[in-house]
């Protein structure tokens, strides 16, 4: 009887569509989960650093938008080869030009950081993945503000994370200097490695 079933199953397999044979494809779940967890392992992005990033992003965006800060979500997501940083914030209202100008002015007085540079840099790669829910979408202004907010969220994935490492702190800093975003993070990774 068992033999007959075997034969039946084998024969039946010929006629089943390929998708059905693929099953639930748990391997793709594993691959995606693994890619994410490895990205966190490799960059050593601790919850503390993420929290700090969150705080700074709120500061940045609140110059342009009035938003529900408690609902802000910050996540990493994998899309193909690229890892994207997804930021989702419910926007209550886009600030008008005067308010933005005021905020910028206040900020210039406080520090010398150049945010204009950041905005120009990533203008070319448009990315619509971020779902910024704009509840009060009234004028042209809100559109453009949203745009620039999205751009600053873009995180360039590190293509090649591996190179032979020299363990002196000076060398680390010079070799990793190109990557401004990950500089601090990178350093902590290095330290962790050296300690072990």
């Amino acid at each position: 009887m068992g033999l007959l079933t075997d034969i039946y199953n084998t024969v039946a397999k010929f006629f089943r569509p390929q998708e059905e044979l693929d099953g639930d494809a748990s391997k793709s779940v594993a691959t995606n989960r693994l890619k994410l967890v490895l990205m966190q392992d490799r960059t050593n992005l601790t919850p503390k650093i993420l929290e700090q990033m969150r705080g700074e992003m709120i500061d940045l965006l609140s110059k342009y938008l009035e938003m529900d800060k408690d609902m802000l979500e910050l996540n990493f997501e994998q899309e193909g080869d690229q890892v994207a940083l997804m930021l989702s914030i419910p926007v209550i209202r886009a600030k008008d030009e005067d308010e933005i100008e005021e905020a910028l002015k206040a900020e210039k007085e406080n520090s010398d950081e150049d945010f204009e540079d950041d905005e120009d840099e990533s203008d070319d790669d448009e990315d619509d993945d971020t779902d910024v829910c704009v509840e009060d979408e009234t004028d042209e202004d809100s559109e453009t503000v949203e745009e620039s907010a999205e751009d600053t969220e873009e995180v360039k994935p590190k293509k090649k994370r591996r190179k032979k490492k020299v363990t002196t702190p000076e060398d680390m800093q010079t070799s990793e200097a190109e990557d401004i975003n990950n500089d601090a993070v990178q350093e902590t990774t290095e330290n962790a490695v050296v300690e072990e």
Binding site: D22, G23, D24, S26, K27, T31
Partner: peptide, 9 residues
Amino acid sequence: SNEMMSVDD
């Protein structure tokens, strides 16, 4: 059957 990561993966 896509239940295990392949060598390439």
